[in-house]
Amino acid sequence: MFLFYFYQKFQKGLERMLSNYIKSIGQYFIMIYETFRRMTKTSELKRLILQELDDLIISSLGIVVFISFFIGAVIAIQTALNFSNPFVPKSLIGFAARQSIILEFAPTFVAIIMAGKVGSYITSSIGTMRVSEQIDALEVMGINSLNYLVFPKIIAMCMFPFVIAISMFVGIIGAYTASVYGGFLSSEQFLAGLQEDFIPFQVFYAFLKSFIFAIILATVPAFHGYYMKGGSLEVGHAATTSFVWTSVIIIFMNYFITQLLLS
């Protein structure tokens, strides 16, 4: 009797949860559609895009450069310490660092960091506008608030692959510095490994997925901020939820794109 009661409760809860997820997915795609309708005045859009470029991209460069340099260095040290076999050429340290940084670290790891930095900023800024009726004020004026708020963020985030390019470059510099100045191999050996079996398509793959991550980074946090309900406490909740969902979607899409393009 009890088991049946709990089973029924579990079933109802599951149904409600699934229905909420499906509703949210539908609402997300409607939001994307609405974002590209009824465009805001061009001069104002230009100003907003430049402002978002500054807030989302330029202000993230510092942390991206810092993290990339040290993670690149750690990748090189870890690889060097694990290559104890004398028959394995030392140039492989450069090769492994390049592959790790270009394929995974720069696009995916940096995207997760950006989900925390940029994603929570987007959710909390839009959520605060929702709570303080600023979004209603835009709507009353006859402005498409989604276009006004989300479109400039999407355009600004299209510059994300440039951040990834910088991250790749700095990451490799970090790997070079740690391995050469740490005494693991010579500069020539590192550079030889860096150029070994280079496949340009892998760089294309990395930039393609960073572009897709950029769209996710701009839209998923915006969705959580725009449709949030409640007060300032809920803005905090929305920012946390947005970070979790953005990370989950990025990791899933990473698997999906890798399976599609590399396997």
Partner: peptide
Amino acid sequence: SKQMGMVFQGGALFDSMTVEENVVFPLKM
């Protein structure tokens, strides 16, 4: 909607804009 003006309970002023930018906003748009 362009013929409507609204004074919200909390003011709903745009935080990132100055007083002048807030007031000029509908004219600019």
